[in-house]
Design a binder for these strands. Structure first.
Lengths: 360, 360
DNA sequence: CTCCAAATTGTTAACGTTCACGCATTCAGA
DNA sequence: TCTGAATGCGTGAACGTTAACAATTTGGAG
């Protein structure tokens, strides 16, 4: 077969024709009419070939393709967008995209979108204040995106999506819980927390402490619940879980407190960065990992396997998350999906930071 | 003053007018003509107001703005792009954007672009093969971007940019060395390496070992040269520098070799992740940091201050890099810049992983 | 008051596609 | 052989904006 996509990429954006008559200041691009003239057909037929319309004789189709190739024709997407109202562009609302998780989702979405024939435009938000999100959606709609994926860890975002024009399909990814405003794709945080906690209990620990993420982040909350639920089910004591931020500094601060308590033998951290801080606190307090205390993280960020010691953690497949989000968005755009919620299962990556509790 | 930007954001993408006459299947958006009619002027005047054309009487300007507001008018950018050939969109060619550095640059570029009134579209490349880069530029030009910033650590990319249509301005960021294909923005790697090496020499180390990045990455090469030059200048012995990849695994592998050599007292690592691997290797070999061996990294990635021990490193200001790239691109687009190369100075962040050599 | 230049506004024609038609031509079935 | 549908292609007319130019109004100097 002989399609558009294997045209040679010798020059970009179409070549220029020798300006036929009235010399304009800006050079004229090759357009459908030029192709049509060369192929001896009407511009409409060229359009049909471009859009794979069935009712074109094979012979003329080839003639048109040949003409396109020799003129290095590129279709003008702005003109197409003007009339069809679709831009082959998707919008992404990004938050904290410098961090590994969001950055991975962004990348995964973009890759998948490209394979589906879309370009992605990005509108980052500094914080999750509603008006910033609204403004981001606005910028994207102004640029006529065909759909939006929000990397949205908090519900403020999903609810802001509800204000988008009804024709604009939106999906939220990296989100905990459901929302009636938009379909969501997220990881099963409770299951992940359960995995981590159960792993530690199975090793023989009496109970498991938890260094939580921010209290107002649903994902952090779900992890707390998964941890707590597992302890309940096992009949173990449930220690208090002090919330904090997602970084090592916060883990370090709370790690120092935990390190001072000799009864603590197992700690589940809400993410790997927190775990890094806890590791340092334990080290400074002279408590060995995993001989004295076992640690489990969450995320499996790059190089978590090179912490001291290599970190046992719950792996989030961010790339899968991104892919699923795109698939869901496309399904909703084509109207043949009513899925509201996609959950991706995390899994445990056992490494050297966990072991049986010290024998008393 | 009373501008477009403080229109209320109650609805997106313009409201719909009650379909005046012939009922079409798709709802009609508010367009300039509607605004014009309401304000009692011609559509061209509306256009002038929108583009801040000077020759509009203040009174009519206000009337038009009011009409726009009450109709919640949004201009159709596709139509605008069709005629002006500019899209208010910039393209970014991304590589390895899941990593902290590139992700930060991406974010910084996007933020700065937004402030300048641009939306950014992103085209990622899986690897730096020339045809992939060419294809990425092609996708962006097809979507009529006004300029391109490539996050381009290797020269294959900058040279591929040379194939872009001449009217399309391109800038490369995160690049070592100069290129005649496009202006480049980069960090002063040699200076950074010098900072690190000199810091160790100043502490009293006889020489400094280096765990390098990939041999075919110019940035890694510049760091090697900065390190080597500093040693030369100080009259110190220059040990061989084994290259590797940018990650902890690679650092660990080469760290094991270095750890086995008792004469090694100072190691400069090409980045923080490598340093993490080296730290683990030293730890496993029973060599203490910084008492026995001092370590310096490069990047200052998040949480480098929570390694064991907290890592002394050379900080790259990725956000500054991104901002400078955008500024440079805009200057080149407006034609009033001939700057070819922007260098950003890194600086040393001393932490706990460096100290004087052990006294024999 | 008159007249010319500047300031302000309107008219018409692009920009490059797709859509809604309409006109030939082909082909199957009676 | 004729009919009617299906196939293949062409002809305007949108889509919503800006550019170019023409027309009108304004303001000040003579």
């Amino acid at each position: 077969m002989f399609t558009l996509t294997n045209l040679p990429l010798l020059a970009f954006g179409g070549s220029f024709l020798p300006s036929s008559d009235g010399d304009r200041s800006r050079p004229r691009l090759t357009v459908m009419r030029d192709v049509a003239k060369l192929a001896g057909v009407s511009h409409q037929t060229v359009s049909r070939v471009l859009n794979n319309h069935p009712n074109v004789r094979q012979e003329t189709r080839l003639r048109v393709l040949e003409a396109m190739q020799s003129l290095n024709y590129r279709r003008n997407l702005a003109a197409r967008t003007l009339v069809t109202r679709q831009s082959d562009t998707l919008g992404i609302i990004g938050f904290e995209t410098t961090l590994f998780g969001p950055a991975s989702m962004l990348y995964a979405i973009e890759s998948a979108a490209r394979d589906a024939g879309y370009l992605v435009s990005i509108a980052s938000v500094r914080d999750l204040e509603r008006r910033h999100v609204v403004e981001a959606v606005d910028r994207l709609t102004q640029h006529a995106v065909d759909g939006v994926i929000a990397i949205a860890p908090k519900l403020t975002v999903t609810s802001a999506l509800a204000q988008a024009p009804p024709s604009l399909r939106c999906v939220a990814v990296g989100t905990a819980g459901q929302s009636d405003a938009a379909p969501t794709v997220g990881i099963d945080n409770a299951a992940g927390a359960c995995l981590a906690t159960q792993h530690l209990l199975d090793l023989g620990h009496r109970t498991v402490h938890h260094v939580a993420g921010p209290a107002d982040w649903p994902e952090a909350q779900e992890r707390v619940e998964g941890w707590r639920g597992t302890l309940y089910a096992a009949g173990a004591v449930v220690p208090p879980a002090a919330p904090g931020w997602w970084d090592a500094e916060s883990g370090y601060a709370r790690g120092r407190t935990l390190a001072a308590d000799p009864t603590v033998t197992a700690i589940f951290c809400a993410n790997d960065r927190i775990a890094l801080g806890v590791l340092r606190a334990l080290h400074e307090a002279g408590r060995r990992v995993p001989e004295d205390v076992s640690i489990v993280g969450f995320d499996d960020m790059p190089d978590a396997g090179y912490f001291l010691p290599p970190l046992t953690t719950v792996r989030q497949d961010f790339r899968e998350l991104g892919r699923r989000a795109l698939t869901l968005l496309l399904e909703h755009m084509s109207g043949d999906s009513t899925t509201d919620r996609v959950l991706v299962a995390p899994h445990l990556v056992p490494r050297a930071s966990t072991g049986p509790p010290p024998s008393r």
